[in-house]
Every structure is written in structure tokens, then in C-alpha cells.
């Protein structure tokens, strides 16, 4: 299992994607799946940095990545603002150019790219995001 704590800054997205790719590659995931896993992890971490930690300096983000049988499991823990995914409006992918909204696209992509996306908020332990992808 890989586990690392990153400063909650966009400059570290590269390293977060690399951590996920290494575990996925060792776990025998295809290059197509590895790209999807990196994109989902990036979108998740970007959302945490941008929204949960909006304006907070010196914040950190705990990332684990593990392969268990045919599943790859990514977790991200933060101590930022709690997040309720049910409050995020699903983007309308059929809207024309002028009405197209970009908000909510990260979460939408995470759900499309992963088999399971689960959020838990706890006032003591913070927010925990768990994302699972089964080997295709």
C-alpha cells in the first residue's frame, strides 16, 4: 500500500497522480485504466484544495492507494470544510455552449471514471473520500 501526505497545493497534483499510477501499474491495471485513475485522483484532490481548503494555507492532504484482489482503492483525507456531494448539481452535458456550466464537472468525472465514490464527514477525524475501481 502507498501512503503519503501532501501539502494541499496544486503543484503537488503531479505527485498524487504519480503515486496512483505506480500502484495501478504494479497491480496490473491497463494504461487506459491508469489514465482514468489519475484523472479521478486529480479531480478529487483539486476539489479538496479548491473547495474544502479554500483560502487555507499550510493545509495537508493524506492519500492512500492500494490494490486488493481486483480492486484499486484510493482514499483522501482532509480537515477542510465538510462536503455534501448531494448538493452538487449534476452538469447538463446537453446544454449548448452559452449555458454550459463547468461546476460539478470534477465530481461527475470521478463518478464516471470510478466504480464507487464515497464521502464521509466527521467533525473529529475530518473528511474521508474513498474511490474504488475494479480491474476492467
Amino acid at each position: 500500500m502507498a501512503h503519503s501526505t501532501f501539502p494541499a497545493r496544486f503543484e503537488f497534483l503531479d505527485e498524487i497522480r504519480e503515486l496512483v499510477a505506480e500502484v495501478a501499474r504494479e497491480g496490473g491495471f491497463s494504461e487506459k485504466d491508469i489514465y482514468s485513475l489519475q484523472l479521478a485522483a486529480d479531480e478529487a484532490a483539486s476539489n479538496i484544495i479548491e473547495h474544502a481548503y479554500a483560502g487555507v494555507s499550510n493545509a495537508s492532504l493524506d492519500v492512500t492507494c492500494d490494490v486488493d484482489d481486483d480492486e484499486l482503492i484510493i482514499t483522501m483525507r482532509d480537515n477542510g470544510k465538510p462536503f455534501d456531494p448531494s448538493k452538487v448539481k449534476q452538469p447538463n452535458l446537453k446544454a449548448d455552449l452559452s449555458e454550459r456550466q463547468i461546476g460539478g464537472l470534477g465530481l461527475y468525472l470521478m463518478r464516471k471514471l470510478m466504480d464507487d465514490v464515497h464521502y464521509e464527514s466527521n467533525s473529529r477525524t475530518g473528511n474521508l473520500l474513498t474511490m474504488i475501481k475494479r480491474r476492467g
Partner: peptide, 9 residues
């Protein structure tokens, strides 16, 4: 090599 939704935006 790579583009996230930040690039799409």
C-alpha cells in the same frame, strides 16, 4: 500528455 477538467474549463 494529460488534461484535467481545469483545462476543459
Amino acid at each position: 500528455e494529460y488534461m484535467s477538467s481545469a483545462g476543459f474549463r
